[in-house]
């Protein structure tokens, strides 16, 4: 009944064509569209839009949730960032973790993908084996690796000694020079499977004809990799690179479980330091300033990457 009435009345009311009234008319007509996205928009306005602004506001205050007074301090928190040596250490550590970890993980992922892209048997099983570390909860991975790196009984020391690479067991996680490499290595193990799956998808999208043509021209396997595979994987590589860098700027869980930021702050990353300031010392103003510093770093990095991406992908 209602439907029929609506259909009849429609031809008589001519919708306006342009202008604000037209927009309002269309908005009223499509009101269910706004209803459908409203749950998302409400959450988004509170936990993203408002949160981002509020965080900015907090960063200009001395904000300790245990104290009733939250005085405005201007740029003091940001000035503190510049002077805080532990924060500098955290920036360096985060940078190290990213600069070494991301290329290693991507390289491992690409190598595995190239291997699995061959016509070999049990491909599905291999893929699963490589992927399992990636679905393992990060907390569990960190626990396993804590054991692997264990100084007296750990697996890594045992096999390195067996292979004759080291003579004495190493204290991986408590040696200031080894802790960060150890955390990075665990990251490679956990992350390569994901990179592999995306690279495999990218590889399978490359038309077989390109390779056939190259073979006719007498290109060997290495040349085909260098001049066909890698250039055509550029979009995949850039996507992985950007998301991996953003992710690794925020590394936290494995640090919390494996090293707790130690030894001598050698594994204190920005993510870990921020957590410590905000939720162990409740120094939320300072932590917010730190979050904005992190945000700025990610922003600068992403903008540079997008620039490069626009220049690179032009075929």
């Amino acid at each position: 009944m209602a439907v029929a009435a609506k259909n009849v009345s429609q031809p008589f009311r001519r919708p306006p064509e342009t202008g604000i009234r037209a927009t309002l008319y269309r908005m009223r007509k499509e009101w269910t569209a706004y209803l459908f996205i409203s749950p998302t928009l409400i959450l988004f306005s509170i936990f993203t839009v408002f949160a981002v602004l509020f965080s900015f506001y907090i960063s200009f205050h001395k904000w300790n949730i245990l104290e009733p007074d939250k005085p405005f301090v201007g740029l003091a928190n940001y000035v503190r960032l510049i002077e805080d040596e532990r924060f500098h250490r955290a920036v360096i550590n985060t940078f190290l973790f990213t600069v070494v970890g991301v290329p290693l993980t991507m390289g491992a992922g690409l190598s595995i993908a190239l291997l699995l892209n061959n016509k070999i048997r049990f491909r599905g099983i291999y893929r699963t084996l490589y992927y399992i570390p990636n679905i393992t909860p990060l907390v569990v991975s960190a626990i396993i690796w804590k054991w692997v790196y264990q100084g007296d009984y750990g697996l890594l020391n045992y096999y390195l000694i067996q292979l004759g690479i080291i003579r004495e067991p190493l204290k991986w996680l408590s040696d200031p020079n080894l802790a960060m490499p150890a955390v990075i290595l665990m990251g490679v193990w956990g992350g390569a499977g994901y990179q592999m799956v995306i690279y495999l998808a990218g590889l399978q999208a490359i038309p077989e004809e390109y390779y056939d043509a190259a073979k006719v021209d007498g290109a060997n396997g290495f040349q085909r990799l260098r001049h066909i595979t890698l250039p055509l994987l550029t979009p995949t590589t850039l996507f992985l690179f950007i998301t991996s860098v953003i992710g690794s700027f925020q590394v936290f869980t494995q640090i919390y479980i494996m090293t707790n930021g130690g030894p001598l702050n050698r594994t204190t990353t920005i993510g870990f330091y921020l957590y410590e300031k905000a939720f162990r010392h409740f120094d939320m103003g300072y932590a917010s300033a730190m979050a904005y510093a992190l945000f700025a770093m990610i922003l600068v990095f992403t903008i540079i990457q997008l620039r490069i991406m626009r220049r690179e992908i032009q075929y």
Binding site: I58, A278, F295
Partner: peptide, 8 residues
Amino acid sequence: PGQVTLIP
């Protein structure tokens, strides 16, 4: 990054 919206 999640850290920015975390505290609010």
